[in-house]
Design a protein around this nucleic acid. Sequence first.
DNA 1: ATATAATGATTAGGAACCTAACTATATAAG
DNA 2: CTTATATAGTTAGGTTCCTAATCATTATAT
Lengths: 186, 186
Amino acid sequence: MNNNNKVTNDIDAIPSLVQSKRQIDRYNLDIDAQAILVASRLMAAGAKLGHASEIHFSRFGLSTGRYRLLADLEDNEGEELPSQLAEHLGVTRATVTGLIDILERDGLVSRRSSSDDGRQRSVILTEEGAKKLREMAPEHFARLEAMVGLLNIEERSVFLDLLGRVTQGISALTGELGSETKGKHQ
Amino acid sequence: MNNNNKVTNDIDAIPSLVQSKRQIDRYNLDIDAQAILVASRLMAAGAKLGHASEIHFSRFGLSTGRYRLLADLEDNEGEELPSQLAEHLGVTRATVTGLIDILERDGLVSRRSSSDDGRQRSVILTEEGAKKLREMAPEHFARLEAMVGLLNIEERSVFLDLLGRVTQGISALTGELGSETKGKHQ
DNA sequence: ATATAATGATTAGGAACCTAACTATATAAG
DNA sequence: CTTATATAGTTAGGTTCCTAATCATTATAT
């Protein structure tokens, strides 16, 4: 059929240990191949999850970013400033402006100029926006829970711990060389 | 100074357990808050890693995708078809075309028409491309290793295992509801 | 042999995010 | 009180990836 332009289920895209070993050996580097594998796998997982997330939210007429904005609004009594949203979501204010534009066009959110500071324009969750969140909650959370369904309670704790430490380590990619354990001491 | 448009170090963007609990309680759902937390944290980590990765590779005049293409070429004797590359990298052929365009413009790769099948145009790693890989290898792998430096050998194994199972679970986001343990049995 | 299908790569256009520059308001300094 | 500076939000334009449509070749079916 026309499955020729499908991304082949990512099955072949999973990095293997031999691949990592080969790359390291090629340049005679003193590097732990398993460490490279962890990094590569996390990267692949992140990309795959990001893509899956967009598909998931598109079922409700949303994107990942727009859902997160709505959810954050709901967590803050339905009203926030764009700059607060940007900080909470970990994106730039420019991105927030774009997210709001579409959410406002779709009636899920509205803008209101602030009285005390003329520069601020607070964002408000509309009744329709709240309804959208209410309607999608059961399926949304059920799917998220199912996603980690292959891990038992204890494994989830362990995973959170390990993931947290690797996440700290991400700064090793962006920071100066040799300062890998910088983010937090220890 | 002008750190006002920085993404605030992502520190406030880390999802917390109370946040997850609140969201679930709001709709009286029977969902494990920790499961939601795992999903949210993985998502945040993936986004952060993706961003850091782009910064990392930009130091060498590359993007994540273009580096991965070069590395895959190197892993395959310096010659591959675009369709193979697409499969290995887990992206579409259209994306590969774009990656090749820039790599070719920069002289790291060249295209050659196949003799046996006129539709195919194989991609070849140039000497300059190989040199680029050679030069960046030490720093690149050192940084990757440093990234997981907060985990010891055993923890890396555990993390790989758990990450693998969560990655399998990602299909729960995109597949039909109720088929969460589909990818592999149990 | 010739019309039809499939296939490999490309092009065209879209979505999500970014940085940098801009507008309008507010605050501080002389 | 006027000028300089900082801040909130927006706009403009770029990057990476995507889907869908197109072009050129090859394979298949009458």
